[in-house]
Simulated scan of single mutants.
Amino acid sequence: MQDAATGQAARLIAGGAATVAGAVLADSSIEHYRGSFENRTMVLPLVTATLSILTNGAVVAGGRPAVPKLLASWRLTAPIHVAAIGVGAVGFGFHSYNILKQPGGVTWQAIFYKAPIGAPAAMVLAGVLGSAAMTLQAGGRSLGPVPLLSGRALAGTAALGIAGSAAEAALLHFRGAYHNPAMYLAVTIPPLTALSLAGAAITGRGHPITVAALGLTAALGLIGSAFHAYGVSRNMGGWKNWRQNLVVGPPIPAPPAFTGLAIAGLGALLLMGRGRRD
């Protein structure tokens, strides 16, 4: 039978997965619109991200009557999470190929301005975290051969995701020449958070510093979106020219990936605390 701590951890992890999927949905919508949906498969991440938000939202809501039973059904949600992982992996391959096929191969110009590989990887993370949350909610103890109740595997996954998001932020902020000192926050706080969370995954013990770092990282994701929105407003025409400036300006949906992964990390720490109490 599921205990209260495990249920709360499942809701946190599902909330984190839904937030990451929301970032992917918004970011992919803008980027694929910019690409005129040239490849018909470009609509797939929008579909899987939307379904991921709905199914993870059902876990966050618990067993409340307002949640349709279909959304809480493992038979439906398991294929959705697998599809999210698959679409993310295929998207990662497409985006990598898009960079490799450019004249001169892998160049800074191609990495800066061609298909970003961060969004498809985030879709994979949303699928993995969503699968874990649904398994925990259903009373499961492992996801395939990977144990979940200790929280260590999930902490490692969240740490890897935060580190990857920080690497993408470092790349894009370097493109922006770090013209605003606040841009350094995204390449200092999240990497330190990832290291602290990775340490917790290795030792099986969380630390108040890790909790505080995850809280800062979650807040940074929301603050980053506000900064990016301000950056969009500074382009010619500002928000009156939103159709163009949303596409060419800093990506507003990207920073909340930090928020989602940090929330999932807090869920993993809760599982660790539960394990020590058993």
Rank of each mutant, 00 (worst) to 15 (best):
H32L: 05
A110D: 08
A49N: 01
T107S: 13
G118C: 12
A21D: 02
S36T: 12
G86H: 07
T48H: 00
L148K: 15
G57A: 12
A119E: 01
G88K: 08
A18S: 10
G15H: 00
L129Y: 00
L25D: 05
I117R: 05
G62L: 11
Q137H: 13
G35T: 11
L129V: 06
T77L: 08
G91L: 02
H95K: 11
P120S: 09
S52R: 04
E38V: 09
L12D: 05
A23M: 07
V20E: 01
L54W: 00
A21K: 09
A14F: 03
L71A: 13
A110L: 12
G105K: 08
L70H: 06
K69C: 06
M134C: 13
P120F: 11
S142V: 02
V60P: 15
I111V: 15
A72E: 00
S142F: 05
G127K: 08
Q109G: 10
N98W: 12
A115G: 10
T107Y: 12
V106E: 00
G93D: 02
S28R: 13
I85D: 02
D27K: 13
R64T: 13
F92R: 05
G88I: 06
A121C: 10
I99W: 02
A10W: 02
G130H: 04
T135C: 12
V87M: 03
Q102E: 03
Q102I: 01
R64E: 09
S36F: 14
G93F: 02
A132K: 03
N39Q: 15
V90Y: 07
I111T: 11
T107I: 14
P116Q: 07
T107P: 10
T48Y: 00
A21Y: 04
A72P: 05
P145C: 12
G127L: 04
P65N: 15
G105P: 09
I85K: 06
S28A: 05
G16A: 04
T55R: 13
G63M: 11
H32W: 12
G16K: 01
S142Y: 08
F37A: 06
S52W: 03
H95V: 10
A83D: 02
T135E: 14
V67C: 13
L129P: 06
A138W: 09
V43N: 03
A115S: 14
V82Q: 05
L12E: 04
G63N: 14
E31L: 07
